[in-house]
Structures are given as C-alpha cells and as structure tokens.
Design a protein around this nucleic acid. Sequence first.
DNA 1: ACTATTGGCGCG
DNA 2: AAAGCGCGCCAATAGT
Length: 565
Amino acid sequence: MVGLRLSSVEIVVVEDDDGAHLGVVDDGATRHETVAAADLPARVRHLEREHRPRWVWADTAATYGRLVRAGVRVERCYDLRLCRRILRRALHAPPPSELWDAADEGEEGLDAPPTLFGVTPLPPAEVLAERARQREVVAGSRDPGRLATLLAAESAGALVAAEMRHDGLPWSAEAHDRLLTEVLGPRPHHGARPAVLEALAAQVRDALDAPRLNPDSGPALLRALRSAGISVQTTRKWELEQVDHPAVAPLLEYKRLARLHSANGWAWAEEWVRPGPPGGRERFHPDYVVGGVVTGRWATRGGGALQLPKQVRGAVVADPGWRLVVADVAQLEPRVLAAMARDERMAGAARGGDLYQGLVDQGVIDTRDHAKVAMLGALYGATTGRSGELVPRLLRAFPRATAVVEGAAMRGEVGGVVRTWLGRTSPEPPPAWKAAQDRQHEPGATDDDRRVARRLARDWGRFTRNFVVQGTAAEWALCWLADLRNRLRATAGPDAVRPDGTATGPHLVFFLHDEVIVHTPADLAEDVATAVREAAAGAGRLLFGDFPIDFPLDVAVVDTYADAG
DNA sequence: ACTATTGGCGCG
DNA sequence: AAAGCGCGCCAATAGT
C-alpha cells in the first residue's frame, strides 16, 4: 500500500514570536531544536521527508495554515486543541493542565482565539507534557482504539480544512455575475435594491394596497397581509404557499431573490471570492471550523460555505483542462445507525443503494416517500404529524436500531450523556435545564413547572437521540475525507504544489457533511472517482469492520457543480 | 448610536 | 404536508 509507512516519530511544534521550537520525539527520547520563523517551512519539509512523522501542534489552522501558504504539506498531524476538547468531555477528566485551561477555554470552554499562541505562547515543555497526558488519557479510556481513531480522524480533518481553505473552491466570477444579472437585473449601485426586486416589491405593494411597505420587514409585512384579508400567522414561505391571493406569487419570488441577493450576491462575492492561480478561475475560500458543531460536524465562519444554495452552484466551475468530481453518500445517517446497532435487517434494506426503497421492498412501509419521512422522524424524534404516525412502523421492524436511538433519547431525557461510535460525548444539559428538572419536584411546584420540565426533558432527549447518529455520521465522513486525502496524495505525489502552495494535482476543494468535491486535472478524473469510492468503503471498514453495510456514492464528473446530482 | 435578539431561510 | 435534529447568515427590530 502506498503512503502507509507509518513511523513512530512525533515532532512537537511550538511557535513563538521569534520562530519555533521543535521537539523530535523518537522512541521515547526527545531531541530539541529551535528554528527561525522564516526557516520553519523548509525545516518541516526536510523533516517530513526524512521521518514521515506525526506533527503535533496546538492549532492546525494557525501553524499548518502558515506552512501550507509557504508551500509545505504534511501527511499526518495531531491537533492538541481539537483532541483535548474531545478528551475532556469524553472522560470528564480534570483539566490536564491549568495553563491550558486558562489559556484554552472560554466561557463555554470551546472557543479559544486562534491567535492564542502568538499572544501567550506556552513553554515547549508544557506542550510536550500535554501531548503525553493526552496519550495517557486515551490509554486509560474504555476503548482506546476507537478514541485514538477519532483523534486521528479529527486531526486529519484539520489538515484537510487548512488545505481546502488555502486552495479554495474554483469559482467563475463571470458565471456568477451572469447568473445574478439574469435574475436580479444589472448590479445596482452601493446597497440599492436591484431592479427586479424593486419591481416585485412594487407588485406586492400594489396587490396588498400598502404603498409604503418594505417587504423585508416581517412585522410590517404581516400587518399588510392581514389588512388585505389574508389570515396567516407568520410570513413563512410554506404558510404563504397555502394562500390564494395575487400578492403571494410576487412576494414569494421577492423573498427567493432577496435572499440570493443578500446571501450570495455581488457584495458576498466581493468579500469571499478572490483571484485564482495563473490560468485558473477565481476561488471561493471558506473558513472551515473543524468540530465546530457539538456533534462533531464542521461549521464555517463567514461566507456561508455550508449553505451554498443550489441556485448559485453554476458558478462553481473547474479550471480549463480540469474537472470536478462531485460525490455524495446516499442516506448516510440511517446506514450509520444500522451499522452501529448491528441491525442486519436494516442493513439488508440498505443494500442495493436505496435504503428507502429497500424499506418498501421489505414490506415495512408502503411508499418510498413515507419511508423517508418515517426514517427522518425516527432519527429526529418526531412525535406528531405524518411523520409521527409513520415512525412506529419503523421502530417495530427494526428493534436493534430502535434500541440505539430510543436508548439515547431516554438517557438524554434524564440528563445523561451519550456517545458516538468512536466516543465523542454529548455535552451535559445546561444549568437552567437541571434547575427546571429539580424545580418540578420541589414542594409548591406548579403544573406549569412540571409542563416546562417535561418539555425541556423531551427536547434534550431529541438532541441526544440525534447526537449519536449525526455524530457517528460525522465520524464516518471524517474517515472518508482522511482516506481520500491519502489516496489523492498518492496519486498526485506529496509535493504537488506550486511555490505559493496551490495544488497542481487532484485535491479536495469542498466538504459538506456527506458530500465532497475534488478538483482534478481532467485526465485523472476517473481515477479520482475510483478513489472517492474506495475511500468510502475504507471508511466503512475502519468504523464498522466487516459488518455488512455499504456506503454507496453518487459520483459525477462535471465541469460545474450545478451539473452534479 | 450601539449590541443582542428574532424571524426567516439556506444547507445537510 | 410542513415538524422532529444540527448549523450560519441576513435584515429588521428590540433592548440598552
């Protein structure tokens, strides 16, 4: 196998104002050296070739971000901050280090400023000690193998995020502008409403007989709708869709286009899209936040990359001579549930690529649509409506899978924590939640107290129910990313970057929970498509061994994201 | 005049 | 048909 000669060398990198301290840990012995900031990239490149080490640092986004910009890439790392966050919660461990505690944890204990080490650099000895402590914590945990896998996957995700942020998503500023102009009219001057929006607003005002209405104002819009005789409770889209009135069509169109304009319009492009490499298109540079969501999913900071609307995906265009390989997993969460529950019958329904159709074929439920609604309801804890009616059929058919989600919900309802497959632990409910639970049992508690407490308990149960599934799906996705990254490195060669750090071979450019995009030279597109599939299979084996669940992908080789799926 | 919250909607 | 999970972002509004 290519790229799997894993050495046991770890190199701890501690940056300070002048440069960096390197602690090379090899077979228990540590050799120290210091490097000037300007020499760090070259030194890292050299040591990477020599040792293929695992790089240990506090903050991948900061340290590796700088290295990537200097044209250096590495194979493996261990992100002390990300891993520490997982370990603390997993084991309710006492703070491994008070220094770290003070420096690393904010109010919520999660949001440390990325510049931290530039401001108050920790002594190298402290960082080395933290690494050792984390190793001990893992070794003493209930399932060290899984926890170590989680930490490795999380750290690999941090590498991917730093690289994707640097490389950016290929973006055609020209196609984007064309698309905007087609539906909104020409770009208006500073902050003005585009012509098409202005015309739609006028139609709405006309139809509602509200000449001064600003359709962006929720309360004003609701008042105008009501005085026009439309009895709606909110101005939400789905409620308006039920209404038969001449104002509705232009209003819905206004809302759709107003959102496009404000969320992904010209101002957005100005802020987030930058010129690309020579001969290439522009790039959109999302700022991913690894582990930014409680369940372990990624978040983004600015730019809204994880909400990139289908409307604008036509602006995601491969460079000339390159292609996009777009892949997403079909029904990731139910598959993950089947595997973690060891539910063979549910896994059986998932075989063949369409789990929802599988449920119909097994006679569990009558239509594919119902199967989907019921499954999502089971994962989210739906109790009412269509979904609530259908869920029980599913629960009866799959007792093992049911036990996993219902068990998680029950633990949450009484204030307990739950764990994902690899061991990410849910947070404890907040103090206000506990206070409400206590209050209902105190003398003098009112019906209202009891009602509030029960509602909060069920809310938290739905959260923990979903946590185990969403969190395990996120773990699968991390392993998929990590495996794919290794395969792409094997294809492109580890040094397939220009001096400015931009990639010259196939590389990941987008990740969206259960979906990836690889930007690749056209002649390698089919190899990449194969790699993406093999990586998915690899992730499934890594997590679930030989349990017979597969993770089928929809893979498309396209010029523009709009043509995928 | 400023910041925090809310409603609405995009994504999975 | 439209509620059950997790998010981020925008404009308007409420709060100070």
